Simulated scan of single mutants.
Amino acid sequence: MTRFLLTRLGLLVVGLAVASILIFFTLRVLPGDVAQVIGGTQASPAQVASIRAELGLDRPLWVQYGEWIGGVVHLDLGRSLVTGTPVANQLGQKLEVTLPLAGLSLVFGLVIGVPLGVISALHHRRVGGFVISAVAQAIAAVPIVFAGVLLIVLLALTLKVLPTQGFPLDGWHEPGRSLQALILPALTIALVEGAVILRFTRSAALDALGQDYVRTAAAKGMTTTRALITHGLPNVLLSVVSVLGIQIAGLIVGAVIVEQLFQLPGVGRMLVSDVGNRDLTKVQGELLAITALILVVGTAVDVVHRVVDPRERERA
């Protein structure tokens, strides 16, 4: 187990290092100049050059990267080139919206996907099971923005049970209002991600139904449903845990997209604004934070799966 943990941590560090290099140098080849943005359209070439020198943008790229990554190691993501404020502080404020949104989306996705996946497997030879499976496949193919618009029309504009857009200005000082503002965006992500979880759950449940221990339990008098839930569900949930390592990335990316649609003051909305302003320091800090979050969660899922799955322990 110790060797496995060290290997996973090593891969995590290597992944973050490679991601930082790709993020930094990819941003430098994009068109546009932050010095020109700061100077404005009336700035002369000499003024733009002076701004570039003041911000250190005229130095070799490897020097700029070394300075930035040195700060990252000490949890310092630098300062915004446009406003001069610390990137880490702004990122922390925005994550107060993005992380709860992703977490709530995951909870909704599991609540939707796991029970319906099990029901679909139990009734896979009936009309109900076929309908659930077909609807899940259709929803999984729906663009997340389109799903959000449909939910806005249905739940916000027609039924008027949830707010359409925005987030309280005082943040989480009123948890009830803040949570209410995240329900509709979280449902938007959960519909698509939950459909994917449903399909994986259904597949794992069908596999469990064909296992000897489930059929033996049914032969001894248990109903098929009880046999699956009592003896097969743990293996089904292990399969779901494995899928979550992949789906977490979709949840976070979905949160970034949905924040634009619902006007939420999270990392995604800030990222789009900073890309438009060519604020490279903020953009690279935001992208690295998102990448780190995905890699860390993926590593955690792998470790949990290794700990709770007896088959993995036996292989080790």
Rank of each mutant, 00 (worst) to 15 (best):
G113M: 14
P143A: 07
G128N: 10
A102M: 15
G129R: 02
G148M: 11
E96D: 02
L91N: 07
L154C: 02
P163W: 11
V111D: 00
F130M: 07
A134C: 03
A138F: 14
A138I: 14
I112H: 13
F108Q: 10
V131F: 04
V153G: 08
P115W: 11
G128M: 10
L91F: 08
L162S: 10
L116W: 06
A141G: 10
I152G: 04
I152S: 03
L150H: 02
A138P: 09
S133V: 06
S120G: 06
L106V: 09
G92C: 11
A141M: 11
L116I: 02
I152Y: 06
V118C: 09
V111F: 03
Q165L: 08
L159P: 00
A156S: 15
L169S: 04
P163Q: 06
G166C: 02
L106T: 03
G113P: 13
K160I: 01
K160Q: 15
V131K: 03
L91A: 05
K160G: 13
F108G: 06
A138N: 15
F108A: 03
E96M: 06
S120D: 05
Q93E: 15
L154F: 05
R125M: 01
L116A: 02
A147W: 00
L162E: 11
V149I: 15
S133H: 05
S120L: 00
F146Q: 04
I144C: 06
V145S: 09
F146W: 14
G117F: 13
S120M: 01
V149N: 11
V161I: 15
L155P: 11
V149E: 10
A141C: 15
F167P: 07
P100T: 00
S120H: 01
V145E: 13
L122A: 04
V114R: 04
G166A: 06
F146R: 14
S105Q: 02
G109D: 05
K94H: 15
P100Y: 06
L157D: 10
A138R: 15
L110N: 06
L122G: 02
F108D: 07
A134L: 05
V111I: 12
F108T: 03
I139E: 06
I139K: 02
V142T: 07
L101Q: 01
S133G: 13
L157C: 11
L151M: 10
G92L: 08
T164S: 12
F167Y: 13
T98G: 03
G103L: 13
P100E: 00
Q137F: 07
T158S: 12
V149C: 04
G128L: 14
E96N: 08
G103E: 13
L106G: 04
S105H: 01
L151C: 11
L106F: 00
I144Q: 09
R126N: 13
L116S: 04
A102S: 15
L155C: 11
V131G: 08
L154H: 01
L101E: 02
L101S: 00
G166V: 03
I112V: 08
I152V: 09
V145A: 10
L157W: 12
V135I: 12
A156F: 04
A136F: 05
L101F: 00
A147R: 04
